[in-house]
């Protein structure tokens, strides 16, 4: 009887494998597709310059001196330009906590690899927007 039971298990396994073949693969095309991250992931920041008051509380809160503020660079009435140095940033979130004017947020984007160290210093034109060049793979454009 043990033989027959083993045979039945063999066929159960084969049935499972056969179903598995026709399922969608679990792997995502990672560098091209976005990976789904939780909403509250502390990834790279976004700076909303309309709300910013140039109070520099984020600069004071930063424990690793990753943020530099340029108060002369004004786009609106009383805002300032922020420079984020992601070679230093530890994504602790203290700057976002320190901001009382809803001007600084984390985003769930964590893939920030660059070829040069200088490219990891996000100036005002990079930190205020989430847009980037879409990646292309086999004629499909992602993001």
């Amino acid at each position: 009887m043990g033989f027959l039971r083993n045979l039945g298990e063999v066929f159960t396994i084969l049935k499972h494998i056969f179903r598995q073949i026709f399922k969608r693969p679990f792997t995502s095309l990672y560098p091209f597709e976005d990976r789904p991250y939780p909403e509250r992931t502390r990834g790279r920041h976004i700076h909303v310059r309309q709300n910013c008051t140039a109070c520099a509380q984020c600069v004071r809160a930063c424990p690793v001196l990753a943020i530099r503020i340029d108060k002369a660079d004004k786009m609106y009435e009383k805002d300032a330009a922020l420079y984020f140095d992601y070679t230093r940033c530890i994504f602790c979130g203290l700057c976002v906590d320190a901001c009382r004017f809803d001007a600084l947020y984390h985003t769930p984007i964590v893939d920030m690899a660059e070829g040069e160290r200088e490219d990891l210093i996000y100036g005002p034109e990079k930190i205020t927007t989430l847009d980037r060049e879409p990646l292309e793979w086999r004629g499909r454009r992602f993001r």
Partner: peptide
């Protein structure tokens, strides 16, 4: 390709 599908890879 089939090994990939069985292991839910591509």
């Amino acid at each position: 390709k089939l090994w990939g599908r069985i292991q839910m890879r591509r």
